[in-house]
Design a protein around this nucleic acid. Structure first.
Length: 572
DNA sequence: GTAACTAATTACTATAGCTCGCAAGCTAT
């Protein structure tokens, strides 16, 4: 799975981290970080590029190009090796402890020889940090809590968990008389697949009572910091929530700023500086006079910078600024664009709701078509049989009369076996309106075998969609290892769609692979994979992932009118 | 280290709050 691009980017990022510890020039460090992102996001494989080719990557100049070449020829970068010899890996790991940055990490290493998180904990226990310049009792306490957090629940949470907290905070604060506007921002608004902390923004002229009300919410376990402009709390499960209160006239600039990403903000601020402006969370200002120019809405902020409004899902500095400047931003697919859902389950297999309830829920979503795709026999615990499947088909056909505005498709979710074959022979498969095929076993095959397996599934004329293609489970199971570009070329060639599964712990395909697949001409299906009525609500996360993959409605087959979809399903 | 309207220098996002120690650095975003 790790491409040369990703490995080279990781090395360059490590170089930046190590330099920040040894106290290198801050701008040099930023240059490395920038180029690491650019290399990771570069569409072409860097292993075939020469010095000139590498330098064509934005932010990669002479020196970094040579380092990448060093990597592609020797497998590593000399400067990284040298710094590794100087700074043990454990010291770099120390900077992962919240409240312990590069400066303090270096101090404990140089003064006390501490080079791992465990050693740091011991050193604090023995009182060895006392007397170190810049380390007081409070710092000790904060580091210990940081270590505890890092080991415990302070990890990133799935997007639905963060969305639940954000919705609760926004609902509670929106009711306060002092609050003029209230929305969540941050990585949740950008729909990242996991969320480190929740950002909530309020517009008001009277912050005090809002901060007090926020700190008193039932979900608050601990108040980390509180001032007039910002209050940070932690929930019982360890999720940090930051509340910022800004004046109403700063709303647009503040929302833009707190939505991030940091990399995107750096780019927008650079554009401001070049135009003789200054952009901060309080507004867009004339750099010389300091006069406020605009900032009431995000639209105004972008417009004054010479850019169209950029959708939050694109704000990662992976090409959206260039596309915006060129007027080539994609019109992203939205939940409202979807006419159908092509992957769902009932209580015939492992769903918990009967067919009628699932179909009624689809009708409530306002869909025009809906596919029932229960599991196929080779997923043995589901006890599927030919007879059960055919009986369900009769039920679906009969139910159709009750839903004149919702076309029901009878399908199945097939299992791609280790060789790339699926359940049932061609004759039986031909009886389905749609077949999704997914990997449910043998996740650890080597890359070559896995690639052939997926390509073979695409080449099956009865397989229309590859379900949750990487089979990952976020935080629990790694994605399968395949040569994705080869899989995507097969999908494009055979007219097989790649699914974007909306389950918050799947979000599969992930956004970076979506972008690669789209470049190779692949189509997508954004589905809920619903196993209950409530799962239909997950569609927002699948659509968010599709947006992060720069997809337009035309890229997504279940935005198409039913007739066009039917043509696609007749791929054979 | 890179990019740019000084072509050899120059600028590089901007702010809040905390901590230590009483002005300034660090961390986080």
């Amino acid at each position: 799975m790790a491409r040369a691009n990703d490995e080279a980017a990781a090395l360059i990022q490590e170089l930046a981290d190590l330099l920040s510890i040894t106290g290198g020039d801050a701008f040099k460090i930023r240059a490395y970080e920038k180029s690491a992102r650019a290399i990771a996001g570069h569409p072409d494989d860097i292993s075939g590029l020469d010095l000139a080719g590498l330098r064509k990557i934005p932010t990669v100049g002479e020196a970094i190009a040579k380092k990448i070449l060093d990597y592609t020829t020797t497998g590593t970068i000399r400067q990284v090796e040298e710094l590794r010899a100087q700074i043990p890996a454990g010291v770099r790991a120390l900077t992962a402890v919240p409240t312990l940055g590069p400066k303090k990490a270096l101090a404990v290493y140089e003064e006390l020889g501490v080079s791992s998180v465990d050693e740091l904990e011991t050193a604090i226990g023995e009182g060895r940090l006392r007397g170190l310049k810049g380390f007081g009792a409070k710092t000790e306490e904060n580091i210990l809590r940081g270590i505890e957090l890092m080991r415990g629940s302070g990890e990133r949470v799935l997007v639905d968990a963060a969305a639940g907290i954000a919705d609760e905070v926004v609902a509670a604060l929106s009711g306060l008389p002092q609050v003029e506007r209230c929305e969540h921002a941050g990585s949740l608004r950008r729909m990242r697949e996991t969320i480190g902390d929740v950002d909530v923004l309020v517009a008001s002229t009277d912050p005090r009572p809002i901060m007090a009300a926020f700190a008193a919410l039932p979900l608050v376990h601990e108040v980390i910091a509180s001032g007039d402009k910002k209050t940070s709390i932690r929930t019982a499960k360890g999720l940090q929530v930051d509340l910022r209160v800004v004046p109403p006239e700063s709303w647009g600039a503040a929302l833009q700023y707190f939505t991030g990403s940091q990399a995107h903000n750096i780019r927008t601020r650079e554009i401001a500086v070049k135009a003789g402006l200054k952009l901060s969370e309080y507004g867009l200002f004339d750099a010389e006079s300091g006069a406020l120019i605009v900032s009431e809405t995000e639209d105004e902020v972008y417009e004054r910078l010479g850019l169209p409004w950029v959708h939050p899902a694109l704000r990662e500095d992976t090409g959206e600024i260039e596309a915006a400047l060129a007027g080539e931003l994609p019109r992203l697919v939205t939940v409202d664009d979807l006419r159908g859902d092509l992957h769902s389950h009932t209580d015939l297999t492992d769903g918990i709701a009967p067919l009628e309830d699932m179909v009624a829920a689809a009708a409530d979503r306002g869909l025009e078509y809906y596919a029932i795709t229960d599991h196929a026999p080779n997923l043995f615990m589901q006890r599927m049989t030919d007879e059960k499947m055919l009986a369900q088909r009769e039920q679906v056909r009969a139910l159709q009369a009750s839903f004149p505005d919702l076309a029901l498709l009878h399908g199945t979710e097939l299992n791609i076996d280790p060789d790339g074959n699926v359940d049932w022979d061609a004759d039986f498969l031909a009886g389905f309106d749609i077949c999704v095929a997914s990997i449910h076993s043998h996740f650890t095959q080597d890359q070559g075998t896995m690639t052939r397996r997926l390509v073979r599934a695409c080449e099956n004329p009865h397989v229309h969609v590859i379900g949750h293609p990487t089979a990952r489970s976020i935080g629990r199971r790694a994605p399968v290892d395949a040569d994705w570009d080869e899989v995507f070329r097969a999908a494009a060639r055979t007219g097989t769609a790649m699914e974007i599964d909306s389950f918050p712990d799947r979000l599969d395909l992930p956004a970076d692979l979506i972008r690669r697949a789209k470049r190779l001409g692949v189509r997508f299906s954004v589905d809920t994979d619903a196993h209950s009525v409530g799962h239909h609500r997950n569609i927002r996360y699948g659509v968010g992932t599709a947006q992060r993959g720069w997809l337009t409605p035309d890229d997504v087959i279940n935005t198409w009118p039913l007739e066009r979809l039917r043509e696609f399903l007749g791929k054979a």
